[in-house]
Design a protein around this nucleic acid. Structure first.
Lengths: 137, 137
DNA sequence: CTATTATAGGATAATTATTATCGACTGTCC
DNA sequence: GGACAGTCGATAATAATTATCCTATAATAG
């Protein structure tokens, strides 16, 4: 929480009551919540907060690196007609996706059994970075 | 394309003009398009097709396993306040997400340099399967 | 080959998630 | 303590997706 305040100051962000409540809610929620759920939690502390404020600050926190999105592609469904096992190269700048053959990487190996009785079916891996075009600029 | 027709018959899906055009568009698009882009391409072949039909059939294809979505979480932004490097266990049934410490897996190793001048920044890995609760039922 | 029927398509409205706008308010800095 | 920029809350607007409903067409039996 102290680190949060420090980062806000560094980035020139006002440390408001609402921002602190939103951030506190986020770190208390390990279930990777959607903005709507964060709103529910924050509202129990600040009943007058608006959903727009929650969205705005989540976006602010994402830009400040205080927070991460689980996927880079939540804005729209992206499709893959190649149902063979393979991975993806994703450009963090232009969001383009290209295929990466599975055997370009060493196979994924668990060091211990997955926790909490999770029954593994398969896995997906995205390599993030800059595509050639974006790296050039 | 023959395999497509066979799968349709197996799953009791009518092999319509529109479905074939949509599927043909999909396999011709390696850029992992959004439904809107697929619609644009199909429309050049069937100008009267409706966007709703494209959406409906994409969903049908996903259910039939003819197609895959790049991410399981496109319907809404999912947040992660833990900015340390770690992975995710994702339940394919209830879509719940739990953290998996990075050192539960052997480190990811490239066998060859990534293609197309891609400059790697980091990577994200999701292990898909059934959580304990969903596996029980 | 034609009739029948279930399924699918097209047009459109509705819903959901997210973003923008704008006047009022409040941290921050002097 | 007051000025100013940045933030908030309310609300409207937009974007993505889904549902509805009536018509058209693919599958299939005869």
């Amino acid at each position: 929480m102290e680190a949060f305040r420090r980062t806000c100051v560094e980035k020139g962000l006002a440390v408001t009551h609402q921002r602190q409540a939103i951030y506190r809610a986020l770190i208390s929620m390990p279930e990777h919540p959607a903005p709507e759920s964060v709103y529910e939690v924050v509202r129990s502390e600040i009943p007058t907060i608006s959903l727009g404020t929650v969205y705005k600050n989540i976006k602010t926190f994402l830009n400040a690196g205080l927070l991460r999105a689980v996927t880079l592609h939540h804005e729209s469904l992206r499709l893959d007609a190649n149902v063979e096992h393979h991975y993806h190269l994703v450009c963090t700048r232009c969001k383009s996706i290209t295929d990466l053959p599975a055997d370009d990487l060493e196979p994924i190996q668990f060091r211990r059994t997955p926790p909490r009785g999770f029954r593994v079916q398969n896995y997906s891996l995205e390599v993030h970075g800059l595509c050639a075009a974006c790296a050039a600029s």
